[in-house]
Design a protein around this nucleic acid. Structure first.
Length: 899
DNA sequence: TTTTCGCATGGCC
DNA sequence: TGGCCATGCGAAA
């Protein structure tokens, strides 16, 4: 071990140029040295003849590391294999049950595919010892899902029928380590804080079980289910020194970041490295062939050739996955997936959805290498159904298939639309694929673009302006950073983002697929009216606006963009003192401030540095009620003070969002706060004065206040009842129209069947039937209106008198029975009246009126289209439940009557 | 007419 | 320069 360490350490601090790179060799190398293994710098160890010969003959470890730690015995042949240094890193493979197998045995036992992710050129230079070439398979495909995935059986991991030169499987974790050290050794140390954060993150992740840390497993000699490493902890610390995979392969550098750097020959450092700070490799560089072969255990190199019509070797060196597909799972994402499972999550890959992917076609184009690596092998274009589980555990079945394309294949997942929609994904969002081990389930997660944006922002902060130099730099493991709510995540420089920024002009996020990166929650938060937004905009200080008139509206135009700030009221300048009034976020008291003061959105009394005596909430409000009333009058620049909730409950919004149900619920909300504090009530609504009794101003905050009795006749209840009735009336109208249409069709049918029926009879029957049913369901038992054909006024006190425009007080007078308990009675009468109108005024337009008390009343009543009715009714099915005695018309019942 | 399917094209890496 | 892949487009359903 010590020699290995020394060897490795020499890579970071090479000996003098004249010394043999092998620190165990005391000889000076000749001027013309021979090349040994590749260093992390990309150069090669320059060896003396003797060492070079030993290396090339595969005797290096036996010669120089014989007494080092890390020697283990092949489980098959018993041959000792050095597992602890860079030179022998590819001389063995790890076995599922633990232990190792020399590559000779490994190749005898299985057919091991090539690992093109680690192109030979990147792994070993041309002078790679033949023996090592032959043996240089190191299988870490456990990482890639060696679990009991039907299409990927563990033994096949070791399959290889490919040229020895391509047998350079790399353990992704190994890559991490070496890459990390490489990176770190090349003076790209992380800033302490960042490094610390990363360490914390990955420690957390490993410790919480969401992922099996390489380090742990590595050092535990390969326990089932995790990543196996057949070396002692000490040798784990050697792993980073296996630096044969370096800069050419950016993928090898990507994930190594997370290893805290420590000089390899420091014991303490070793412990750290071998510990829990290794980030699970996202398998970005896992070769496709390995997976292809893993898929069915068969020799898939042939398969591969079949697929592409050419040997895989042609694409050698490009087989690692593009950075944009590297999985960059956040802790949160991982935990979401594993929340109900003790499974180990193996991140596979991810893809940012293109417009096509997220479109209605329902085809998700899969990166070819990912598809071939992680999905079942398919030989027919039709492919096969693939069961994928989403993060919530719901299973989806997609058709995994391919299209022949330019002698290649284009892999797609078909039928993803429902899943995409259920995840509410759009172009620009990212879907992630991972595998649950040991179940082998394929798990599809997602990441919204907004999260990525956050991530990117965070990245930018963290990056601190460091330059980005292409892919190698993009793959810089340093780019792992932390996202506010998702834990660590790869910086976007890792792939997707740079791929966007540098992306083809009309590709993935072209103009048509751009989206505003706002999460739903954010959208909700931002769901403010234009007016509110305007109210939040503060003109730049000391700026005189230019008044523009656009389409009849005046706009203030400023040289500088307005800023978002605390809404305030700047009253007319009568005294020469320009002041503004604003409201404390905590106590809601109004405070006077200089007009030029730009206030934070969360301004409180404590921020009142202009008036220290009123810099605390207990200080009395300077404004009297009258003054405040005047201040809040429409003449002033009314700020949308504390009206967000109110705005959400404005009638229009109520209708749109919650509709009838909300209205009904309002009846049981407390009026205390609302009606008892008219001064405050107006603050909910910018256009209303104190004392306004509109439904906006009178309503209490949602969920507050005592429930009202059904007999309550307070303003709130009356208003709600009235509006409820109005809404129900419209609903009935809609239903009636529907019913009428149904009946018309049925009569048409009957007319065909019974041509001797007269039209009058039909229409009579129709009306009769509908109304009868109406009466029946509405339990209209006044006894005087049995025959609607007579068009006889109801005996109800307000039959035919319902005035949608009436004021609650008047309504109360007119309808002695119109307390809350008689709401249905009113509804019945309303429906009755409506039917009468329908009969007497076929197709006539009902005169509508507005409720002067209701701010939304005009829109609600005047010229209201049926669409509004539809919305209301459709949005308020609960209303039916709450009021089963609505005046519904039952077509079937009508039919029975008619028939 | 619309949707789906399969392939082809072409830009980008 | 070759491969990948986003997307266009025509044929089929």
């Amino acid at each position: 071990m010590s020699s290995a360490l020394t060897t490795a350490s020499s890579s970071s601090s090479p000996l003098s140029s004249k010394s043999c790179y092998n620190s165990d060799c005391k000889e000076l190398r000749p001027d013309r040295s021979r090349k040994g293994w590749r260093l992390r710098t990309g150069d090669f160890a320059e060896l003396c003849d003797r060492c070079a010969s030993a290396y090339e003959e595969g005797r290096f470890c036996e010669t120089f590391h014989l007494n080092a730690s890390g020697w283990r015995c092949c489980e098959s042949c018993g041959k000792r294999v050095h597992c602890g240094c860079i030179v022998s890193a590819h001389a063995f493979t790890l076995l599922d049950p633990g232990g190792i197998e020399c590559m000779t045995c490994a190749r005898k036992n299985v057919i091991l595919p090539l690992n093109p992710a680690w192109p030979p050129s990147l792994l070993f230079h041309s002078a790679l010892p033949d023996r090592l070439k032959e043996l240089s398979v190191k299988n870490w495909s456990q990482l890639a899902g060696s679990g009991p995935v039907p299409w990927r059986q563990a033994p096949s991991m070791f399959n290889s029928s490919l040229p020895s030169g391509e047998l350079h499987h790399r353990a992704p974790y190994e890559v991490d380590i070496s890459a990390a050290l490489n990176k770190l050794n090349t003076s790209e140390r992380l800033p302490v804080s960042l490094e610390k954060r990363k360490n914390e993150d990955f420690s957390e992740r490993f410790l919480n079980g969401s992922l099996k840390p390489c380090g742990q497993d590595l050092c535990e000699n390969g326990t089932a289910g995790g990543i196996k490493c057949d070396d002692k902890p000490s040798s784990c610390s050697n792993m980073p020194k296996q630096s044969s995979f370096v800069k050419e392969d950016s993928s090898t550098m990507q994930y190594g970041l997370n290893i805290p750097y420590a000089p390899p020959n420091e014991p303490s450092a070793r412990g750290r490295i071998s510990g829990t700070h290794l980030r699970p490799t996202p398998l970005s560089s896992l070769p496709k062939q390995i997976h292809t072969n893993l898929q069915n255990g068969a020799d898939s190199s042939n398969e591969t050739q079949l697929r592409n019509g050419r040997p895989r070797g042609e694409s050698r060196g490009k087989n690692y996955l593009l950075p944009r597909y590297w999985p960059r799972f956040t802790d949160q994402e991982l935990q979401q997936i594993s929340v109900d499972s003790n499974s180990v999550i193996t991140p596979l890959f991810e893809k940012m959805l293109s417009a096509s992917d997220a479109g209605r076609i329902g085809r998700l184009v899969l990166p070819k290498k990912c598809a071939e690596a992680y999905f079942p092998s398919i030989s027919q274009p039709e492919g096969l159904p693939l069961k994928v589980q989403d993060a919530k555990g719901k299973e989806w079945i997609f058709q995994f298939r391919f299209w022949p394309n330019n002698n290649s294949r284009m892999y797609v997942l078909e039928g993803v639309t429902p899943c995409i929609q259920s995840m509410q994904l759009q172009a620009g969002d990212t879907v992630t694929f991972s595998r649950l081990e040991p179940e082998g389930k394929l798990v599809m997660g997602f990441r919204k673009a907004s999260a990525t944006a956050d991530q990117e922002n965070e990245t930018n902060k963290t990056k601190n302006g460091a330059p980005v130099h292409g892919d190698a730099e993009l793959a810089d493991p340093n780019s792992w950073t932390k996202v506010d709510k998702s834990g660590y995540i790869a910086k976007e420089v890792l792939g997707a983002k740079p791929s966007i920024s540098r992306k083809r002009k009309n590709s993935t996020l072209g103009s048509k697929s751009k989206r505003l990166r706002i999460d739903n929650e954010d959208m909700i938060e931002l769901k403010i009216t234009w007016e509110e937004a305007q109210g939040l905009l503060r003109p730049p200080p000391n700026q005189v606006p230019n008044i523009l008139v656009i389409e009849g509206f005046e706009f203030e135009a400023y040289e500088e963009a307005p800023v978002l700030g605390k809404p305030s009221i700047i009253p007319p300048d009568n005294t020469g003192e320009r002041i503004q009034w604003t409201q404390c976020e905590d106590c809601l008291k109004w405070r006077k401030l200089p007009a030029s003061a730009l206030l934070p959105s969360k301004w409180t009394c404590s921020d009142n540095s202009w008036e220290p005596e009123r810099s605390f909430c207990s200080a009395p409000q300077e404004l009297s009620t009258e003054q405040l009333e005047e201040l809040l009058s429409p003449g002033n620049s009314v700020a949308p003070v504390k009206k967000m909730k109110a705005a959400k409950l404005e009638p229009d919004n109520v209708e749109a969002l919650e509709g009838l149900d909300t209205l009904a619920n309002l009846a049981i909300l407390g009026e205390g706060e609302a009606s008892q504090t008219p001064g405050q009530a107006t603050t909910k609504h910018p256009r209303h004065r104190p004392g306004c009794s509109c439904i906006v101003c009178i309503q209490p905050p949602s969920g507050k206040g005592p429930k009202h009795k059904q007999t309550c006749t307070c303003n709130v209840c009356l208003t709600v009842k009235r509006r409820f009735r109005t809404l129900m009336l419209r609903r009935e109208k809609k239903q009636f129209e529907k019913e009428a249409e149904t009946m018309r069709q049925r009569h048409k049918f009957q007319d065909e069947m019974f041509p001797d029926r007269s039209m009058d009879e039909e229409s009579l029957t129709c009306s009769n039937t509908s109304t009868s049913k109406l009466m029946e369901e509405g339990k209209m038992n006044d006894g005087s209106d049995e025959d609607p054909n007579r068009n006889k006024p109801s005996t109800s006190p307000f039959k035919g008198q319902i005035d949608l425009n009436m004021q609650p007080e008047r309504e109360e007078e007119l309808s002695p029975g119109s307390d809350s308990g008689s709401m249905m009675k009113m509804l019945q009468d309303t429906g009755d009246r409506f039917l009468e109108q329908q009969r007497s005024n076929s197709g006539g337009t009902r005169s509508s009126s507005s409720d002067p008390l209701e701010p939304g009343g005009e829109r609600e009543h005047k010229g209201e289209s049926s669409s509004n009715v539809i919305d209301l009714s459709s949005n308020n099915l609960d209303a039916d439940k709450d009021h089963p005695a609505t005046l519904s018309l039952n077509p079937s019942a009508s039919m029975s009557t008619t028939g």
